Computed example of a mutant assay.
Amino acid sequence: MDEGVLRLKELLFPSIEDIAVLSVDVNVEIVRVDAHCTTVGAACPGCGAWATRVHSSYLRFPADVPSAGRRVVLQLRVRRFRCGNSMCPRLTFVEQIAGLTRRYGQRTEALRSALAAVGLALAGRAGARPAAALGVSVSRSTVLRLVNALPEPEVPAPRVVGVDEYATRKGRHYGTILVDVETRRPVDLLSDREASSLAEWLAQRPGAEVVCRDRAPFFAEGATAGAPRRSRSPTDGISGTT
């Protein structure tokens, strides 16, 4: 890798390894970056075997984080490798660059993370408007899909759990909401209000010391089955409001 290519790579993708930037074309509306992967092979996503035999190559055009109001698009040359493992169901596979691309992705990981952060803060419709102002054309549905694709955060089991119902369609369909009573923050939603669902949730979280619930029979049954020594009702002196 010559000095000019290395300088471009460090400027545009300082945290990404195994990528070479060949050229950058800038005009009034768009910045196009020509790049390719520098590794000699790739690990098969099906079996993990290392492959070096190239089947073919083609161009991908994932969108990246805008620069100075201009759209940034990568012209990324990717290779399709032949898997050498005869037992692997995948005959060929396309290389991915860690921290930059993913399978079927139309955006770089940096842009996905930025849009997901906007979606978490503003939700779909409100999040799409500032994204457009920054130079990213995206629909509210896409913003919500990116938020839904985020991994579930690790939430420690609350010491005091509040249990109540919520309606997704009033009079028709109800679920169960579970709240950390001490912090007054929701910790989980169950898609129904069945006793078995609540019992399973409590059984998986032995760190919950107190279950605060109303007098609904399904909540009482679920709390008794999932946490027989921890269930309390409002009549025991602990508020059932969640």
Score class of each variant (00 low, 15 high):
E29P: 00
G84V: 03
S23F: 01
V94G: 08
R77F: 05
W50A: 12
L76T: 06
I19G: 11
G48I: 10
A43M: 06
R102C: 00
L22T: 08
I19C: 09
A35S: 06
N27H: 14
S56K: 02
A20N: 05
C37S: 13
F81I: 10
C83I: 03
N27A: 15
L100A: 06
A35K: 01
H55C: 06
G99Q: 13
A35L: 09
T101G: 03
G69S: 06
C44T: 08
R77T: 08
C37P: 07
V26L: 11
T52I: 12
V26S: 11
F93S: 04
S86G: 04
A42M: 11
R53E: 14
A51P: 00
A63G: 07
R71N: 02
Q96P: 06
I97G: 04
T101H: 05
L22H: 14
V40I: 13
Q96R: 08
C37G: 14
R80G: 07
T92M: 00
T39W: 14
V65M: 00
L76Q: 11
A35Y: 06
A49V: 14
Q75K: 05
R90A: 09
S86D: 13
L100M: 07
A51V: 10
V54E: 15
S67L: 13
D25F: 12
H36Y: 15
D18H: 15
V73A: 06
V78C: 00
H36I: 01
S86K: 07
C88V: 03
G46T: 00
S23C: 01
V21Y: 01
N27T: 08
N85Q: 10
S57W: 15
G99V: 02
I97K: 01
C83F: 05
V94D: 09
V21M: 02
R77N: 11
A68C: 09
A98M: 12
D25I: 00
W50D: 11
S67P: 00
R32L: 09
G48C: 05
H55N: 07
I19T: 10
R90W: 04
A51T: 11
E29V: 05
Q75R: 15
A49G: 14
G69E: 07
R77M: 08
R77C: 08
G84C: 03
S86L: 10
L74V: 00
A43I: 01
T92R: 01
A42K: 09
E95I: 13
M87P: 01
G41C: 10
G84E: 11
C37H: 08
W50Y: 11
A43V: 03
D64I: 03
P66S: 13
R71E: 14
H55R: 12
D25C: 07
D25N: 10
P62G: 02
A98E: 15
Q96A: 05
V40Y: 11
R60L: 05
R82V: 11
G99M: 12
E29M: 04
H36L: 14
R32P: 02
G41V: 07
G69Q: 05
F61L: 04
R82T: 09
D34H: 13
R60M: 04
R53A: 14
A49H: 13
E95H: 11
L59H: 09
G48P: 12
L59M: 09
R71Y: 04
A42W: 10
L100I: 09
T52L: 05
E17T: 14
D64V: 02
L91H: 04
A63D: 12
D64F: 05
A42L: 10
R71Q: 14
V54Y: 13
T101C: 02
S67H: 11
C47H: 08
G84H: 03
